[in-house]
Nucleic acid binder design. Structure first.
Lengths: 213, 213
DNA sequence: CTCTTACTGCAACAGTTGTTGCGTTAAGGT
DNA sequence: ACCTTAACGCAACAACTGTTGCAGTAAGAG
């Protein structure tokens, strides 16, 4: 029973359930296609990303890809999930401001990457494919929950009040960076990130006042 | 002479330049198509929004639409521009907090509309069509500049420091609402909007400290 | 080694999306 | 009323997108 093929962590990877007992060369094909999809996303981003393009690049027949993934969005999301698992670590520097500064810096650096840009692009607005949209929401939820640790540690230290809703606080921490970089497409240099950090920390502190009404 | 058909304000409407001297039934066709596009967006949103669908609904031949607009994104953006001009007013209540609260409330209400949801959806992430993407950025830029008035009045009143960069401040004001409602798809009730307002105002105040380095 | 089973490639097909050439139509100027 | 001219409808077409049936093939079980 230890033989079940689930990945190291119970990550949310893989829309195509690897659950069923393979009776074919599933794993190899999957890897080849997803690698090709990543390559395609690296040069060209989402523009020109299509099932046909990935099929041509991978050598796998289009019909196979359609059968396993179905839509371009599902394929892109599934390919990215494989690589974003490593993602960005949650800092623990001992103070809220430095935690936030480091997290924002890491995020900005990631979104500066070609791959990160695509991930950010897909992350910001709803997707048309229901399955892909479900994964997007799950990803955000997972991610925000992880970041809540920063807020909870700050509350434990007494840096912020204990009445702050962690989820709202996390949103406040991340919102301006995402609007600035991903929605508006502007760069985020060090002074900008410093300013975002100051603003974010102040916002979280303000959420304490009379929060639970 | 009062008969000129240009809209009240020299809005950025219309990707299709109405500049050239019309030798055909330009204006009528344009209106019919854009009205049909809005209808199509109202029921169905961006899903199922295609040139073909709008052609069928408007009775205008698809080839005509392709010639004038080219892509689905350009058509959608152009149709929406016609209706978003009325948009959301910039409040002037005499205090920063109440200005922000009203603006956030108006925005949340607008995004709760079917039309507003589509606008918000298109606003959050880059568009693939270059022309449509240009309009998106222009719209953001225009909008943010308008909102700067709130910040500048607050600075004039002494509510916030004069070293605050208005553009950063405006981003800080709007960021959490957009992340919460448009990216995450969550509702924004009154208490939530109150909390966003408190956080946003605190964030703007924090931007003052040592802002210009 | 053989059998089962699932997945793949291939080819044929259907639907949608976007393009182009041509004759026709209507708006605005004279 | 007439002429010019841009825009439109139509049809034919090209390209891309997605689906389906069938035969072949590889992985895992006994």
């Amino acid at each position: 029973m230890g033989a079940n093929p689930t990945p190291p962590r119970p990550s949310l990877s893989s829309l195509t359930s690897p659950a069923a007992r393979p009776g074919g060369r599933t794993a190899r094909t999957r890897k080849v296609v997803l690698d090709a999809a990543i390559e395609q996303l690296l040069d060209g981003g989402l523009v020109g990303f299509s099932v046909g393009a990935v099929a041509a690049r991978s050598g796998v027949h289009p019909s196979t890809i359609y059968r396993r993934w179905g839509t371009r969005e599902r394929l892109a999301v599934d390919a990215l999930l494989d690589r974003v698992d490593a993602a960005i670590p949650i800092p623990d520097t001992g103070a809220l401001a430095t935690d936030v500064r480091q997290l924002l810096g890491d995020l900005a650096a990631f979104y500066g990457t070609r791959l990160g840009a695509v991930v950010g692009h897909l992350a910001m607005a709803p997707l048309e494919d229901p399955a892909a949209e479900g994964v997007r929401q799950l990803l955000w939820d997972t991610r925000l929950r992880e970041v809540e640790a920063i807020v909870e540690r700050a509350a434990a230290r007494g840096e912020i009040g204990r009445r702050v809703d962690p989820r709202s606080a996390v949103e406040a921490l991340l919102a301006q960076l995402h609007l600035h970089v991903l929605t508006l497409g502007h760069p985020a240099d060090a002074p900008t990130l410093d300013a975002f950090t100051r603003a974010a920390v102040a916002a979280v502190r303000a959420l304490d006042d009379a929060e639970p009404r």
